[in-house]
Write a protein that binds this DNA or RNA. Structure first.
Length: 360
DNA sequence: CGACGGGACGC
DNA sequence: CGACGGGACGC
């Protein structure tokens, strides 16, 4: 499984089109002759993937210069953080050097990575966003099986099946990167929800997340909430000295006592989830959208997330939703103010979330 | 009257 | 308990 993806490198290494391409320099972006299929690849320009995080552009250049004279070399970095994105481009003067670089440097192990060296495709919009995420795969499906399943829909650039790090067994999840986005779209249409031969459950095929904007980062709001939680044993007086102005007038008379709110929230694992206070909102209209919750709760302070719970079939709101707020004091005020609030022709019920759930 | 998500990825 | 790779097209 080491050469995952490596063996999916375009097969036409140096053997494909013998008629010379228009140019072999790095500025080949001009010709956008999209003829349905993919464009001619440069014979000198390489893409290098899976570079070690610490490797600099100059280190890459010197590595590839050991093969032949390098015309240009570029390491792609995040434009805001400056961090290496783990891939780059090397353009040689001579096609034979590029071919030699593929033959000798592809699969080279550097630090913890095994780099991949292949011909770069001409940059174009059509090749972006062509990566698919596939789940529900039978555990015995191999990478080759996966490629066989998807290859009817286009040219596969990479494929991968995720395996458990310890057991090495398939997680039933994989990725397919097509050459063209259109190919990926077709594969979704044709394969999503289908049951592979020999399997019993349907697979899910969808576009993969973009690795650059995955918001895995936990907001740094959580840390300082924990020590404060110790204070909540006693009655709250004035949350933060004084209440902020609430632009919703006659609501508070419906509100339960703050002490009741507290009693609920003290139950472990309920409203307090470690990075905010989860609020249950009931009696929402079927057409309710997320923005309604944002507008309702936003005036009371920091809202981390909102969620309208919908029926899977009808896509209509099931009558309730959740709002997570960062600060306890603000959450209390929001609950006190919005519980009993009439939205449309419905009287909302708002409280800290409890642990209720359907089954069990 | 009714009623408390989630395709959470980690050991 | 299935869940975003090893940062894949010029940041």
């Amino acid at each position: 499984m080491m050469q995952n993806g490596m063996d999916t490198v375009p097969q036409q290494n140096g053997t494909m089109h013998t008629n010379s391409t228009s140019s072999s320099n790095s500025h080949n972006s001009s010709s956008q002759t999209n003829t349905g299929g993919h464009q001619e690849e440069s014979k000198t320009n390489l893409i290098v993937n899976y570079l070690p995080q610490t490797m600099t552009q100059e280190e890459i250049r010197s590595l590839f210069a050991s093969i032949g004279e390098v015309e240009s070399c570029k390491l792609i970095r995040d434009k805001v953080t400056g961090q290496s994105l783990g891939y780059g481009f090397v353009n040689y003067h001579r096609p034979e050097d590029a071919e030699k670089a593929i033959n000798t440097l592809n699969g080279l192990r550097l630090q913890n990575k095994t780099i991949k060296v292949s011909y770069a495709r001409p940059s174009s919009e059509a090749i972006k966003g062509a990566n698919l995420y596939v789940s529900g795969l039978p555990k015995n499906m191999t990478q080759q099986d996966l490629e066989n399943l998807f290859s009817p829909y286009g040219r596969i650039i990479t494929s991968r099946i995720l395996c458990d790090n310890i057991t090495g067994l398939s997680k039933g999840v994989g990725f397919i990167r097509f050459d063209q986005r259109i190919e990926a779209e077709r594969a979704i249409q044709e394969l999503n929800g289908t049951i592979p031969k020999g399997s019993t459950e349907p697979i899910t095929v969808k576009f993969a997340n973009n690795p650059s904007n995955n918001n895995k980062a936990i907001p740094p709001l959580a840390a300082y909430l924990a020590p404060q939680a110790r204070r909540f044993g006693g009655p709250i007086h004035h949350p933060t000295g004084r209440f902020r102005y609430i632009p919703l007038s006659p609501l508070s008379r419906y509100s339960p006592l703050a002490g009741d709110l507290l009693a609920n929230s003290m139950l472990p694992g309920n409203a307090m989830n470690g990075s905010g206070w989860c609020i249950f909102v009931y009696n929402l209209a079927p057409e309710t959208e997320e923005n309604v919750l944002w507008q309702l709760f936003g005036p009371f302070g920091a809202v981390q997330s909102v969620k309208v719970i919908r029926d899977l079939q009808t896509n209509k709101c099931k009558g309730f939703g959740f709002v997570t707020m960062t600060n306890y004091d603000e959450a209390v005020v929001a609950i006190q103010s919005l519980n009993g609030y009439t939205l449309g022709n419905r009287v909302l019920q708002v409280s800290f979330k409890t642990n209720k759930s359907k089954a069990t």
